[in-house]
Design a protein around this nucleic acid. Structure first.
Lengths: 294, 294
DNA sequence: TCGAATTATGCTCGTTATGAGTATAATTCG
DNA sequence: CGAATTATACTCATAACGAGCATAATTCGA
């Protein structure tokens, strides 16, 4: 039973979140774990460098799957260990794709995205109604929750749940009994899209409590560039003044002496990430009513 | 290269967090992944039931390691996929150990625990001072952060970081160049303690934003029992009135008609977890300044 | 050259969440 | 019966958060 290492490399370029792919966007960089690899991560780094020429920086493990036995029924099922890597695009690289090409409904920054969700919700509604009453009601509930219908808010972290719901409903080409119509969005080979969804969900969750967003930023940047990067990842628009308050209050960044070049309106101050805070405690509050230590 | 599945089963009994072990507390339930297993989780369930007789409920994947090549130098290194399972202890089971037997310093609910941290900090200080200045300063900083010294608060989620620091400093028996004196606390075979630390950290993080704590509770319970369970897991004492406000405000529980039997002071109302909220949105706030959708 | 458009930045205001503590209520136990 | 114990309700100050107003400093087209 071979073990495979697979990487989701993410970067943000021109305010769009990108993922590094091979073979025309159909597969993610990957390779088998070999006895010579000093650790899982070093094995992964070797494969990614060999296949894409891209050296890895910040890497974290995502999830381990036993992939569905391939078309043929040998017991040569492999174990797939997936990783998320955050990086920056170097000029001249290719294979980078906008992740919303794979999950168009995950971009909720535009009216288009919201309209798409409405259409998907309708298709899913049909699927729920096609089931016997009890099951249908459960499906209906699940749809409302994952897609934020009926006044429930959109939860940007439910990427995987939404994909799996569409999969079950037969609305993506990968579905095992695919329905007639499928939802817009490019697919991938094997479990590729599921792994990408896992990566997106993890990243969206993580930027809330760790300063990982700066792994995707250049050395210096304006607060608006930072905001656009977060928005690209989260797929949601934010309140500008409050965003800036949040960032500055937490001492995550420090001013540089420079202003951003060639802007339109008023030139913006350039900031730099304060690397010192990286090891420091998490961003958010504890959400548990602790007693102050005596 | 064989693949092994390993489980950390957690329960809370009499306000103490327990972990299910075998062989006198030295190993966790585990077994090889076999071709016949329908999925990784079913394989895990089979092994745990076979080895301990305990059926699994809530399970989530923790982390995948390539374990250090065993004593001998064959390339028969195995991949270890670890899982966290939350459950309740059934009467008559044995092999359950208090997790603070393995990590005594992680219990910060008592003055004892705090005193122990002070002693460990002293030993680690020696280790930092034994290094050349630059490295020593870095170590010092790391110690202060992970153990919450110098006014930095104790962060209950840094279980793994603290263990790894002790490991590096040679203060645990597993350390590869073990120092003379080691810190109090039972050890385990192989990577057992590292995996347990990972499980503790994950659970402590998770109870902050998902209602998983109820997996460890009986059907009905008083708010104080709930608080004691959270405190046992988090290793920190909480403010009673505010804890109760937090829980009730979020509609996580509903009153039952009953009161707790055989209490001392005033009898407490029994509550029940509202299972409906399980799929529902996360507990906490978003920590990103979103604009309200139009 | 001026005014519109555009982006940056500072500040206020009301609401909610959080940390800490006071005050009572309802029991058991010696 | 009074002390000890646990439950529960409230208050108060402060911090965090969501929303928006106001002003500053630019570019760009007429």
């Amino acid at each position: 039973m071979p073990t495979k290492l697979i990487a989701v490399l993410i970067a943000v370029s021109e305010d769009r979140p990108m993922v590094l792919t091979l073979e025309g966007g159909r597969v993610l960089p990957s390779g088998p774990l070999e006895a010579g690899h000093r650790s899982l991560q070093t094995g992964l780094r070797l494969w990614v460098e060999r296949q894409t020429g891209h050296a890895l920086g910040h890497v974290e493990q995502l999830y381990t799957f036993a992939d569905a036995p391939d078309t043929d029924a040998t017991d040569e099922r492999s174990v797939l260990i997936s990783y998320l890597a955050l990086t920056r695009i170097h000029s001249g690289e290719h294979g980078w794709r906008n992740w919303y090409d794979y999950f168009p409904w995950e971009d909720q920054t535009t009216p288009d995205g919201r309209a798409l969700v409405a259409r998907i919700a309708a298709q899913l509604g049909d699927w729920a109604r096609a089931a016997p009453p009890a099951l249908g009601a459960a499906r209906h509930q699940r749809i409302a929750l994952t897609f934020g219908l009926e006044g429930l808010g959109w939860d940007d972290e439910l990427v995987l749940q939404r994909y799996e719901l569409l999969w079950e409903a037969g609305l993506v080409p990968e579905s095992s009994p695919p329905a007639g119509a499928t939802v817009r969005g490019q697919d991938m080979a094997g479990d590729g899209r599921r792994i990408l969804a896992t990566a997106m969900a993890r990243l969206r969750a993580k930027i809330r409590y760790r300063p990982v967003i700066f792994e995707l930023m250049p050395d210096s940047f304006t607060l608006l560039q930072l905001q656009r990067t977060v928005e690209a990842v989260a797929g949601q628009a934010m309140h500008k003044q409050n965003f800036r308050r949040l960032i500055t209050q937490q001492d995550l960044v420090e001013e540089t002496a420079d202003l951003a070049p060639d802007t339109r309106g008023r030139p913006a101050r350039l900031f730099r990430f304060r690397r010192e805070v990286i090891g420091a405690r998490r961003i958010a509050g504890s959400k548990l009513p602790l007693t102050r230590p005596v």
